[in-house]
């Protein structure tokens, strides 16, 4: 009886030991902290993060990774503390929100950890060594420019906002700013939470309320997919749908020349890829790396869609 238990305990210890060995053997341990998959975009983010980590591990066996996905800002603070307890050399973080994450990341920096922030900056400048981000104001501006180009003589559009967050506010502000003094009339804005079901319902109600709608900015490709179904159901013609962020399904629609969707805005979850790769290079090849790396948010049209198309990604 005791022998049997001992054997089990020994096997367990061996298993744990075996599991922990790679991180002991590696020269550098990189912590990666990102939001959990709560909607399509973060789902894609998780997919590309795991994919990139696997590739980097394979290519550079002397660099190891720990990944933590958090479902709230509070949880992310705890997760970063746990990562620090594992003595990471570098931290790649996509902050849930800027303000609550600033202090914990600053504490990590004080311990000598190399900091790379992705997508969202921190509330204080000069903490991060590397910033890799998208351009949120440009995201809103690109949407506004699209409608200006589409309706030079004026048009009536409705807007779906995302999940109430700082990012959403920045985009909408830039969007409104770019539409000032134009003939584009924004009929209404409602939250659709970057969610296809909510996008469907909000669009159904918009279509009931406004007899004339020339365009919809759904704010995100998930919500755009819902809006497309609602427009199809109501049998309304000549409504231009613009989403945003570059979901593969929507880019495919643009490539194939869909009758409602002829463009998309680039703001992909793939921006985590260069962040992880750059930080890996720092330890794998001793490349000196710091500064800012900002990806633009250009408009994707039929001509350049193939460049942004990832058929195998979940987003």
């Amino acid at each position: 009886m005791f022998d049997k238990m001992k054997a089990i305990v020994a096997a367990g210890a061996l298993a744990i030991g075996g599991w922990a060995t790679p991180s002991l053997a590696a020269d550098a341990l990189i912590g990666v902290s990102i939001p959990a998959a709560t909607h399509g975009w973060t789902g894609g983010l998780n997919y590309h993060t795991k994919r990139t980590i696997d590739r980097m591990k394979e290519a550079f066996p002397n660099v190891d990774f720990v990944l933590a996905t958090s479902s709230s800002a509070t949880q992310q603070v705890n997760d970063i503390e746990d990562l620090l307890a594992r003595n990471i050399n570098a931290l790649v973080v996509l902050p849930f929100e800027s303000d609550p994450l600033t202090e914990p990341v600053k504490a990590a920096k004080a311990k000598g950890v190399f900091i790379a922030t992705v997508d969202r900056g921190l509330a204080e400048e000069g903490i991060e060594d590397l910033y890799v981000g998208g351009d949120n104001p440009q995201y809103g501006t690109a949407a506004a420019e699209y409608f200006k180009g589409k309706f030079p003589d004026g048009g009536k559009i409705v807007v779906m906002r995302g999940i109430p967050t700082a990012i959403d506010n920045i985009r909408i502000e830039a969007f409104n700013e770019a539409l000032k003094d134009t003939k584009i009339e924004v009929l209404d804005m409602q939250y659709a939470n970057w969610n296809p079901d909510k996008g469907f319902e909000v669009m159904q109600d918009y279509l009931q309320r406004f007899p004339e709608i020339d365009g919809v900015w759904a704010g995100d490709d998930d919500a755009a997919l819902g809006a497309i179904e609602a427009i199809k159901q109501a049998d309304r013609k000549n409504v231009a749908v613009l989403g945003g962020s570059g979901m593969n399904k929507v880019i495919k629609l643009v490539m194939d020349g869909h009758d409602m969707v002829d463009a998309d805005i680039f703001y992909p979850p793939t921006l985590i890829i260069p962040a992880i790769e750059l930080v890996t290079m720092k330890y794998a090849t001793q490349a000196p790396i710091n500064g800012r790396y900002v990806l633009g948010s250009p408009l994707i049209t039929k001509d350049n869609a193939a460049e942004y198309y990832f058929p195998d990604a979940p987003y």
């Binding site: 709560t38 909607h39 789902g43 969610n195 296809p196 079901d197 469907f200 998930d222 179904e229």
Partner: peptide, 12 residues
């Protein structure tokens, strides 16, 4: 059949 897809936010 409404949207033809299930996502992690379905039924939230």
């Amino acid at each position: 059949p409404r949207l033809g897809a299930a996502t992690p936010s379905t039924g939230l």
